[in-house]
Design a protein around this nucleic acid. Structure first.
Ligand SMILES: [Mn+2]
Ligand SMILES: [Mn+2]
Ligand SMILES: [Zn+2]
Ligand SMILES: [Zn+2]
Lengths: 150, 150
DNA sequence: ACAACTAGTGATAATCAATGTCAATGATTA
DNA sequence: TAATCATTGACATTGATTATCACTAGTTGT
């Protein structure tokens, strides 16, 4: 999905609910599309170099995007991160390295069986899920074993 | 695990790191043990009826308990909740009903296979996980179908 | 094109949870 | 007991988010 299509989806979602794609909203959206995902609010505020865009507008745009499912908020420990949420499907999983803080996205789901079990045992109909794994990434594991040899 | 044992575990963890079980810490701990889990900080502050316990102390105790793995913090949408974390194992899963807000704890895990796949594909060693399912609980599903009949 | 109306904005003030400060208190040790 | 050190409560401070409100930009109907 290239960024042209992404912007079209956003415009469609805004229009559907009677919101406008203002220059400020477009500017903030472009930032999020261009810069790698998983941004904090502070990240986004810092990336807004245009001094004519007020801080209130940044907060308002993020809130609006959240409500329209253009952005999604993920909580990793202390911080909330925002990422694009334009695919209309379950959230992907995240691996968080407790050594270096890196966030890795997982390309498979494999929760269907578990969701079925949740329905069988609890009668709970799953609409969405959030799954985070905390642990040690490949690079940090290697670094650790290197250090041990020394 | 009854609450007597729970308190013994807590005392052990405090003593190990050179912390004291003060009357204030014990009071706050008892609150959390007695009242049903998944409390917000505000819940805890409101439950502290003893006016001689300062607000700073509540915050400090929670932070200390978190650092000693006596409490664990879970984020459900907008709010952070705290629950006892005295079993030294993976967090259990949570089902959150988007209709009535109820939080259900899941008594099985079934993530081993997925964790193995994460290791195979990414070389990521999983230490812990957090899994939340959002959806509709049994009761709300029934209520919905009742309403539809009317 | 014009006026009337509406949505969105930016500067600023206000709010509120969380943290820092510090003198006083309580516990522990020598 | 005296010295030492952890802990506490009152209070001040911070800092992120929200509310206010006059103003601007965009939209609609004529
Ligand atoms: Mn992601
Ligand atoms: Mn729980
Ligand atoms: Zn790492
Ligand atoms: Zn429900």
């Amino acid at each position: 999905m290239d960024s042209k299509t992404e912007k079209e989806i956003v415009i469609k979602r805004l229009k559907e609910k009677g919101y406008l794609l203002t220059s400020q909203r477009e500017y903030i959206l472009n930032l999020i599309i261009k810069n790698d995902r998983h941004l904090t609010i502070k990240d986004i505020c810092n990336l807004v170099e245009d001094p004519t865009i007020g801080q209130s507008t940044v907060y308002r745009a993020i809130k609006l995007f959240l409500s329209l499912d253009i952005l999604r908020k993920i909580n990793f420990g202390e911080n909330d991160y925002y990422e694009l949420s334009l695919e209309n499907k379950h959230n992907h999983h995240h691996l968080i390295c407790s050594e270096c803080g890196k966030i890795i996205e997982v390309g498979f789901d494999y929760l269907d069986e578990l969701e079925n079990k949740v329905y069988e045992d609890y009668g709970f109909v799953v609409k969405n899920h959030t799954l985070r794994f905390c642990g040690i990434c490949k690079e940090c594991t290697m670094k650790r074993s290197d250090d041990a040899k020394t």
